[in-house]
């Protein structure tokens, strides 16, 4: 097996392992009975009358809560395993190309997936998030990996402009912040789900898909705080990445800021995230809308990663698709 084949095999293994992990988390998420108890308490607070339906489903569940928790633990082990396989795949690429592994869009996207999952595992290890939410993290990361397949490129040598230690500094910062912000975006979405779930419950309205997923989510306030903390952590990193990029632009292109499409959209993302941080401290209604800004920010990041690479032409274009 050549290095390239080994790297690709590890990559495919990663996707399969994450898919298995996702399934295990889903079992825990659906059948661990402790979570419905929380929801029941919430519903009772809301004053609705049909409190028992969810609990009934849980008691009749084909999988016992203990087994469900076992599945969750398996999911966590698989997540670690898959992340190790992903890291190994990247390292294998480094060894056979003999260069830093951020040379084209595929490699960049894979890096974002790794950064996202490492962030997730770190949060779980610190006890900041319940394990069963790994369902959403593995889902998001697997989607990212799936997208990367569509832009798969044979690893080749780097063009001269990329041959610089600034690729390590700038691109690593960009990848790390994109990965962390991915998880931040997941929490912003979960928060909004839970919030509207709570609202419907207290209004006594029926809960339909996808809102019924929110039943077992942690408290909306806790999700919001976590969203904020992740963004507070990622924002300086994003800032640093942009600054490092402009230092590199000065060296490679002769000018530190060229308003090249990639720079324009990085600037837009930065401004949107700054707006998110402000919204959170500018009063009640702005704070309530802040999670939407976080999601908008990530949409801009994704746009910059995909559309700007594929559609716009600019100085960054040579990085190879």
């Amino acid at each position: 097996m050549t290095g390239a084949e080994a790297a690709n095999a590890l990559f495919v293994a990663t996707i399969l392992i994450y898919a298995a992990a996702m399934f295990s988390y889903a079992v825990e998420y659906a059948f661990d009975k402790r979570a419905p108890k929380r929801a029941k308490a919430l519903v009772a607070v809301g004053g609705a009358s049909d409190t028992d339906t969810s609990a009934d489903v849980a008691t009749e569940a084909p999988i016992s809560p203990a087994a469900a928790r076992g599945a969750g633990r398996l999911g966590l082990v698989l997540t670690f395993l898959g992340t190790a396989a992903l890291a190994a795949s990247i390292v294998t690429r480094v060894i056979y190309t003999g260069r830093w592994p951020w040379g084209n869009m595929f490699e960049y996207t894979v890096g974002v997936a790794l950064a996202g999952m490492v962030t997730w595992l770190w949060l779980v290890s610190r006890g900041s998030v319940p394990r069963r939410l790994g369902l959403f993290a593995t889902f998001a990361v697997t989607m990212v990996l799936g997208t990367s397949v569509r832009v798969y490129t044979e690893a080749g040598p780097l063009v001269p402009a990329l041959d610089s230690y600034w690729i390590i500094i700038h691109v690593t910062a960009a990848i790390a912040s994109s990965g962390i912000l991915l998880i931040g975006c997941v929490f912003a979405i979960l928060h909004l789900l839970k919030r509207s779930f709570d609202r419907r419950v207290s209004d006594g309205k029926p809960i339909r898909f996808p809102l019924n997923i929110a039943e077992r989510l942690p408290d909306a306030t806790a999700l919001e705080r976590l969203t904020f903390k992740i963004h507070v952590f990622a924002f300086p990193l994003l800032t640093f990445g942009i600054i490092a990029g402009s230092v590199w632009a000065h060296l490679a292109w002769g000018r530190y800021w060229n308003w090249d499409p990639k720079e324009v959209w990085a600037f837009i993302a930065w401004v949107v995230y700054a707006a998110y941080l402000h919204a959170r401290v500018s009063g009640r209604s702005a704070k309530a809308n802040a999670p939407w800004l976080a999601i908008l920010g990530y949409a801009v990041m994704l746009f910059n990663l995909t559309a700007v690479n594929l559609v716009f032409s600019g100085l960054h274009s040579y990085a190879g698709v």
């Binding site: 499409p261 959209w265 837009i268 700054a274 707006a275 919204a279 500018s282 702005a286 801009v300 700007v308």
Partner: peptide, 18 residues
């Protein structure tokens, strides 16, 4: 709040340049 709106306006205004 004005800063917030201006920030978002700046983001929007940067788009045509790309």
């Amino acid at each position: 709040r004005t800063a917030l709106i201006l920030l978002l306006a700046l983001a929007l205004a940067a788009i045509p340049g790309s």
